[in-house]
């Protein structure tokens, strides 16, 4: 559906307009404790992957979820200082035969507990139902084909997420290392239609976009131009690394230079951008250190200041 995003309903626009404009944030990892204790001013919010803060003992176990006490203690300290945004990894919205309502209940509980302004998950799947009733984890986010059938699946599931956790929900564009043939629509078209059909906003991961454009040889600016940027609420920026001839989303240290260029190109075109999140893997903290993180955040802030207000 070319240009389908023009059909954004007034209610959906209002929801995106009302999202608080947070600014610049970091995806939490355990190496950040030293930085967070030293830098209260350069950071507007913290994004967390809720699944990192508990152990899931699986279907049928009671209790199924057990908080990791020391991690939650650290989170309580963070939540007393910054707004918390949830970035989920376990909904597995693209799984054909698995949708875990208990897991959704758990996430919805954390939405209330930490009063996220919004939360998000990925345009992919990682759970597959196993023969013994337990889900098998694919071990990495598996891309979905951009077909009508998958669009319907995602729309229905996101509507369910929004029912149980009635706050804005965003979907993130994923990395893919294989080209799925015979797809019915492009990724931007899929994201635009998904956003309108389900009411979700978009989390535009510019490093994922850069990774895909580099590995699959397309123009990332064209992708940005095709996307309904009015639906973009959050942007992710990160670095990566090469593996076996392909670029990967390893979150290796500082933001890749082409991602900064994409950020500078994209931000002024967004109307409802609320946050830019810097992601890095904790093993790269010795490379970045406190000063390196601060530099990344300052550079992101200069892009943030160029947004449409």
């Amino acid at each position: 559906m070319t240009g389908g995003y023009a059909a954004t309903s007034a209610q959906q626009v209002d929801e995106l307009l009302n999202i608080p404009k947070l600014g610049i944030g970091l995806l939490y990892n355990p190496s950040l404790v030293e930085f967070l204790e030293s830098d209260l001013d350069g950071l507007d919010y913290i994004e967390i992957i809720p699944d990192m803060f508990w152990t899931d003992r699986g279907h049928g176990q009671s209790p199924r979820y057990i908080d990791l006490e020391s991690w939650v203690r650290a989170l309580e300290w963070i939540a007393s200082r910054w707004p918390i945004v949830g970035h989920n990894i376990g909904l597995s919205l693209g799984s054909a035969d698995v949708f875990d309502e208990e897991h959704l209940d758990r996430l919805a509980g954390w939405v209330q507990r930490y009063r996220y302004p919004w939360h998000s998950d990925h345009l992919s799947f990682l759970r597959i139902s196993g023969p013994d009733g337990h889900d098998h984890n694919a071990g990495l986010a598996v891309p979905v084909p951009y077909d009508e059938e998958l669009l319907d699946l995602f729309i229905n599931r996101i509507k369910r997420v929004r029912q149980k956790a009635p706050i804005p929900f965003l979907i993130e564009n994923s990395v893919y290392f294989v080209d799925i043939p015979e797809q019915e629509m492009s990724e931007p078209e899929f994201l635009n239609r998904l956003s309108i059909g389900s009411g979700c906003g978009l989390l535009l991961d510019l490093h994922n976009l850069y990774t895909n454009s580099r590995n699959h040889n397309f123009d990332p600016l064209e992708f940005v131009n095709q996307l309904d940027l009015g639906r973009v609420v959050e942007i992710h920026i990160a670095g990566g690394s090469e593996l076996a001839g392909m670029w990967t989303d390893s979150h290796a240290g500082p933001v890749s230079e082409p991602v900064w260029e994409l950020l500078a190109y994209t931000v002024p075109k967004t109307a409802n951008l609320a946050a830019i999140t810097f992601e890095f893997h904790d093993s790269y903290y010795p490379l970045l250190k406190t000063e390196g993180i601060r530099q990344q955040l300052e550079r992101a802030r200069s892009s943030w200041n160029a947004r449409r207000v």
Binding site: A138, G139, L140, P145, Y176, F177, V178, D179, I180, P181, E182, N215, L243, A244, G245, M246, T248
Partner: peptide
């Protein structure tokens, strides 16, 4: 079936296995 047969021979499949 056609998709899987074409995907499995792509170099990205081997990268995905390494990432796993």
């Amino acid at each position: 079936q056609r998709r899987l047969i074409r995907v499995v021979w792509q170099r990205g499949m081997s990268v995905s296995c390494t990432l796993y």
